[in-house]
Design a protein around this nucleic acid. Structure first.
Lengths: 215, 215
DNA sequence: TATAGGGCCTGATGTGCGTCAGGTCAATAG
DNA sequence: CTATTGACCTGACGCACATCAGGCCCTATA
């Protein structure tokens, strides 16, 4: 005896608050490397944890999230909203990059920028303010912001953020046999040659440049 | 008054069990979309949760993991072992891909294959067995296994796994103005034209092919 | 206008989880 | 030999977590 449904019928599409919830989950995931708990999500959204729980359930029902019930942070994004191609995602701006510390230590994060979601989609990203003019011929000027995809390896020819000893530099990477070169894109600067014994760590690859001044 | 250290000194390098722990964390992360808890990790490794806790602490101390203390699943991998380029990572083999259900539903996972870690590094991957000969000219034969990086968008020219209505197909994607084409790589098959009103979902991009028969 | 969903709340419940103390055993370096 | 570390254990502590019941308001539909 299935009766005709009366009042309002369940929505198939994603609603505004749900879209926002999904967005914050994505942001959390990219910045921290693991999903938020229901409570953390509630705090971020400024609603109660029971409401956040509701939101998550809706998103699971509509196929955007997968989850393992009764597990802390048992959340994973399995689908993106359809119109999401033109959407923007905030990524952290990292200030000082010290040698021994993780890049995403809270003290180091000095702000946020919006970037195209597709840039960020695969992997964790951060933004870095450039000091100096060593990459002007690659279109990277003093005080520009570069978007960096975090990755420990890079290919020859990539523009990378490298940690050389105690300092982070942005240079173009060239891998030759037996040695590695970090080349500036400015004839007035010297290339840096790195041997196997030097302490070089690739922090990530530059995937975009912003001109905050708009010059 | 710093005394000379007596017995065994702390290791700087990663040890065997630690390498295994890191590997299982990576595997869990790729398959489920979030890191394991200490207890889950302990069960996977077959050790007590206190021991797993020890291992994780060591990995944090040595700079391989980052973690937020006292948080469930507050784990993130920040560095890969140096010799990891030649290492293999297991990814799930997905059987039937149904329309409404998430790809990674446990019922759908029918096995595991090892693939090069660098293939998997950015993003979640799965493997899919091919039926049919529509992609033979691209080197993909009947009963081959393709490694797929999960992503909801793809570029023109990519070989993708697409969900068309109720069926998953592997085809080469061509994006023209106003319509999308899914082209087989076999002259005996017809291209499929998809309009904006058709239900097309890109599941991911093919990044590698295995010939399980070895023919 | 009766009915039901979406979004939100407060408050209670039970247990999963990280952590710590304290201990065993083997390997290693003074 | 003795101190110290890594890898493992048992057991206990207490908080944080997901979940549920019950209720409020607004809006959309039959």
């Amino acid at each position: 005896m299935t009766q005709k449904p009366r009042g309002r019928r369940p929505l198939k599409e994603i609603t505004g608050p749900q879209r926002r919830t999904l967005k914050e989950i994505r942001r959390f995931l990219h910045q921290r490397g693991f999903p938020p708990t229901i409570k953390e999500l509630a705090d971020i959204l400024g609603i109660s944890h029971a409401s956040a729980h509701d939101q998550v359930n809706q998103l699971v029902r509509k196929g955007y999230l997968r989850r393992e019930p009764r597990k802390a942070r048992g959340l994973a994004i399995i689908r993106e909203p359809e119109d999401e191609a033109s959407d923007m995602v905030p990524i952290p701006i990292v200030g000082e990059v010290a040698a021994g510390q993780p890049i995403f230590a809270q003290e180091n994060i000095i702000g946020e920028v919006l970037v195209e979601a597709k840039l960020v989609r695969s992997g964790r990203c951060f933004a870095l303010e450039i000091t100096g003019d060593s990459m002007v011929d690659a279109g990277i000027n003093d005080r520009d912001l570069v978007v960096v995809r975090q990755q420990p390896v890079a290919e020859s020819g990539d523009i990378v953020v490298a940690l050389l000893g105690d300092e982070a530099t942005v240079k173009r990477l060239y891998i030759r046999e037996e040695k590695i070169e970090l080349r500036p894109e400015n004839p007035r600067h010297q290339p840096i040659t790195v041997g196997p014994e030097d302490e070089l760590r690739i922090l990530g690859k530059v995937v975009a440049v912003r001109n905050p001044g708009g010059r």
